[in-house]
Amino acid sequence: MTIHLPDTSGGSRAYEPRQEPVVPAAGLPLRSRVVFSAAHVVADPLRTSADAPAAVDWDATLAFRRHLWGHGLGVAEAMDTAQRGMGLDWPVAAELIRRSSAEARSAGGRIACGVGTDQLTGPAATLAEVTSAYEEQLAVVEAAGSQAILMASRALAAVAKGPEDYLEVYGHLLRQCADPVILHWLGPMFDPALAGYWGSDDLDAATETFLEVIAAHPDKVDGIKISLLDADREVALRRRLPEGVRCYTGDDFHYPELIEGDEEGFSHALLGIFDPLAPLAASAVSALDTGDAAGFRGLLDPTVGLSRHLFEAPTRFYKTGVVLLAWLAGHQEHFTMVGGLQSARSLPHLARAYELADQVGLFPDPALAEVRMRGLLAVYGVDA
């Protein structure tokens, strides 16, 4: 049955939704790559408001994490996709880390959790205060029994005077980490407050500082997550990592070729786009596990158009599309987000996200997705 989707010209286009979903392979342990999905949180629609602390539907949020583990993916918890710094404050993030870590132990799932400084919400902090904030969050993650991901810090970006301040803070943290951590370099396209991270707006200079941190503590660094949306830069950095330090791609534009790799190596994955793509991503990596690179690319390449659409500028609002797709796919019962972020994207953007997701067979029940999309259009006064 045809659905009429609004476009950016003010008109509409007719679209014929698919009738059958793509049936993914059974969830199997993934062997050739370590794959994390940065997971979103499900808001409580009866308690959520734009100017109040985040209200989370814990049952639905944890159920979605079981869905990811069921497909063989790890969960990267309390990260950018979970709206850290965009609706999810530190007290709720800490509770999320504790609950998800306990759930991971029960489900036998892999988990790593974000450690940042977002409890610093007042005036500009000092380096000592930034370090202390990191230590507080690191203690919560380690006490929960999870691997730590040292996230980029807005507070550090604001107070650091140069590369030496980054070397001091990260060196201090890495020396006291109980287990190897993942270092996260998030570019300003995801968060404008992180411009100039590692002490320079020059990415070549910033890369040298980043590598200096790793080289000084290779035994404390499991890997790096690089989110600059620059495939060539990621490959060049990947080739310079010390032996045993993984590169986890965070490039939501070029992930198929980066995960597949080349004659000199490959990237593992820690991706926000693998939240909606979990079944297809798991099937693709399972193909790669058997040496079927063509099958891997055949499954993942068609999803890049959807990912580029969700992550188009302003990139930081990609979470809106991620939650839309979770609702359309039946993983939650509403399209509401903490901080009111469901309003961050236009209706034509959301309509195109639905279309692209349906084309790659992302919805387990295409009929349900169509009914819900029609309902959303009706709310906006559009007769589909």
Rank of each mutant, 00 (worst) to 15 (best):
R13K: 10
P24D: 14
R31G: 14
S37R: 10
H40C: 01
P45C: 03
D51G: 07
A54K: 05
A55T: 00
V56R: 06
D59E: 02
W69I: 02
G74L: 10
A78D: 01
A82K: 09
R84G: 14
L88W: 13
P91H: 11
I97E: 04
R110W: 02
I111L: 04
Q119T: 08
L120S: 04
G122T: 14
A125P: 03
V140A: 12
E142T: 13
L156G: 10
G162H: 09
G162D: 14
P188I: 09
M189Y: 15
E208D: 05
P218T: 12
D219L: 10
D219K: 08
D219A: 14
D222C: 04
L237W: 07
R239N: 01
R239A: 13
G265T: 04
F266V: 05
P279N: 11
D289Y: 13
A293E: 00
L299Q: 14
L300H: 15
T303V: 01
T303Q: 01
T320P: 00
V323L: 05
Q332R: 05
Q332E: 14
V338D: 00
Q342C: 00
S343F: 10
Y354Q: 09
E355I: 01
G361Q: 11
G361W: 04
L368K: 05
E370S: 04
V379A: 15
